[in-house]
Design a protein around this nucleic acid. Structure first.
Ligand SMILES: [Mn+2]
Ligand SMILES: [Mn+2]
Ligand SMILES: [Zn+2]
Ligand SMILES: [Zn+2]
Lengths: 135, 135
DNA sequence: TTTCACTTTAGAATAATTATAAACTATAAA
DNA sequence: TTTATAGTTTATAATTATTCTAAAGTGAAA
């Protein structure tokens, strides 16, 4: 994904391409592989990488704006930090509690044969599988 | 589960059956169905139910002691609160984000046909399935 | 009974996140 | 181009969940 696409991506979702947003978006979206992060880890990586310092509040604002726009998803893992994911398609995860690392599993790599029906009046929105790892 | 069993349960895991622990244990374990809760919700329910007030720190201490003893498990759900579960066997969950409610799914009610192999050097500890619900 | 390690407790401390409100800026209109 | 303004950033305060601390209290072994 090139810079022009980043600008398009932001503009098309009603987000002004500010210096900060472009920098964060380039960091998050100009990569081959899926990226899982917390706001804290993203902040550290951005501080290390770039010259200009972005306020922590801006990173929170931006990550939430990207999530609302559908450019990031939120993943639930153990712990009290919120994890975000550049993979917004339906997929599953390995979770290595040793390193607190998430690894994507393609939706097609897990097949569920039997599943209970949803309770009274509710519908199934989606199914998420977590495979917890140990050494 | 009767009071004598509660005392046995506590003693057998090296926990002195103090007034507070017995009260919390009775509240948590003397019920037919599985119970999912946060420390905050447990605190509210205990305050409402009982005459004697238990300090919040004690509820945190006790819940963690019970978890360490294997009498409670921790469930990961969306949000930044920690959820606990009186069901300590291997099982899955429906999650109703509308009510923030967890519902147990028996391990046998979900059959996974295809699963990817664990990454290099890692082993699969367990597989957790979350079925997210909508109205 | 006495003793003491274990436990409870109030309050302080920490960690993650959100709110506030003033300064700044992208961009549409003039 | 300037100007106007709604959107954005930022430092800092506030909030929320949880853990820490250290003093007072207590269960149970001796
Ligand atoms: Mn979490
Ligand atoms: Mn959680
Ligand atoms: Zn992912
Ligand atoms: Zn459960």
């Amino acid at each position: 994904m090139k810079k022009i696409d980043i600008l398009k991506k932001l503009r098309s979702s009603g987000l002004r391409p500010t210096k900060q947003r472009v920098e964060i978006a380039k960091f998050l979206f100009e990569r081959e592989k899926t990226f899982h992060f917390t706001v804290e880890s993203l902040n550290k990586l951005l501080t290390k990488k770039s010259a200009s310092k972005i306020a922590l509040a801006t990173i929170y604002n931006t990550v939430h704006a990207f999530k609302t726009a559908g450019h990031l998803s939120e993943v639930e893992v153990r712990g009290n930090k919120t994890y975000f994911d550049t993979n917004v398609s339906n997929h599953h995860h390995f979770y290595d509690s040793d390193t607190s690392e998430l690894i994507d599993i393609d939706s097609n790599d897990i097949i569920i044969q039997k599943i209970p029906k949803a309770p009274n009046g509710k519908k199934i929105k989606n199914v998420e599988v977590f495979i917890n790892l140990i050494n």
